[in-house]
Design a binder for these strands. Structure first.
Ligand SMILES: [Zn+2]
Ligand SMILES: [Zn+2]
Ligand SMILES: [Zn+2]
Ligand SMILES: [Zn+2]
Lengths: 163, 163
DNA sequence: GCAGAATTTGCAACATTATAACATTTGCAG
DNA sequence: CTGCAAATGTTATAATGTTGCAAATTCTGC
């Protein structure tokens, strides 16, 4: 089980970032998509932690690095990254997080801790099946699923310093 | 099966509205919550159709009726209605829709047609169970679930004027 | 390499959604 | 009636996201 699936536990996060960037380069190359410096830097910023980042947070980072950026700069980069399955938008937070399953066909399910702010992306086939069964029973043609669960992660609800 | 569960099919929508208002009055009375004229009017506006309404759409309606309203007027009414389980916010649309299961403990699942804009709220126990199983396996303490499915409703994907 | 097409970026203004802060009014209990 | 809490009015502002167009860059066919 890759450490990338465990944002709530201590792990070498540099590996998360470098793996995400390596994957992204490969995915873009295979699709003939241009992972330009700005796009790659935005992806890297998004991956700086497992806490989703708002578009204007990204913008502030770019600006502080001397990049002459405006909102469209960021939104365009984020659109590109979303299109190619490299980041997800978390609708309930108006924020963006790196995709933990880039390249794989999947339905993301996001576990959002309201205490520490970290987000874990899960893929669960039985959830996906249950949803498709339910929508199918209504003859609804599913195109996109937004599934975000807010609550407390194990690290936060067992008490930060006990157990 | 109540007609309220079938926004995609022709139905007597006035019944939806009056039932929702009747339910709301009873629920608020039982909880000793004050369903003031503004709050009730906002609820009625939300229920005017099965298409979610943005806060500023509600505001425009109120204004056109001569109500001296500002954004906080609407957001406060919507907060109240959400708190008491009378409306839901659809995160992926930044819009609000009447709760089709007010008073019942439920996990809403929203089927959003991108063509006609109608939203059907479903409650599906096997979906809820699958989600709770998946989050439980990660020792995550679930507090709120956002589940929104975008796609095409039966009326829109079978062709608007055929079978 | 070079001209032309397509994609990407810079830039300014603007649109939409949501909240903060504080004054005023209203409903209700004692 | 009085005093308190809840609700509302009012103004301003914050946060998030988009449009439109011009300039620069990159790709493509030659
Ligand atoms: Zn990590
Ligand atoms: Zn993903
Ligand atoms: Zn109806
Ligand atoms: Zn509901």
């Amino acid at each position: 089980m890759p450490s990338r699936a465990l944002p709530y536990r201590p792990h070498n996060h540099d590996d998360c970032v470098s793996q995400a960037l390596t994957d992204a380069r490969e995915i873009c190359q295979q699709k003939n998509a241009r992972l330009t410096p700005t796009r790659e830097r935005v992806l890297e910023l998004i991956w700086q932690s497992h806490k989703p980042l708002g578009a204007y947070d990204v913008l502030a980072e770019l600006t502080s690095e001397g990049h002459n950026a405006a909102p469209p700069t960021v939104y365009r980069a984020l659109d590109f990254l979303q299109q190619h399955g490299l980041v997800h938008r978390i609708a309930s937070l108006n924020a963006f997080t790196g995709c933990a399953h880039a390249g794989e066909h999947h339905t993301g399910m996001f576990l959002i801790c309201r205490a520490c702010g970290n987000v874990l992306e899960l893929t669960d086939t039985s959830v996906a099946k249950a949803i498709h069964d339910a929508t199918g029973a209504e003859a609804f043609r599913t195109e996109a699923i937004t599934l975000e669960v807010a609550g407390l992660c194990p690290g936060c609800h067992t008490g930060p310093h006990h157990e």
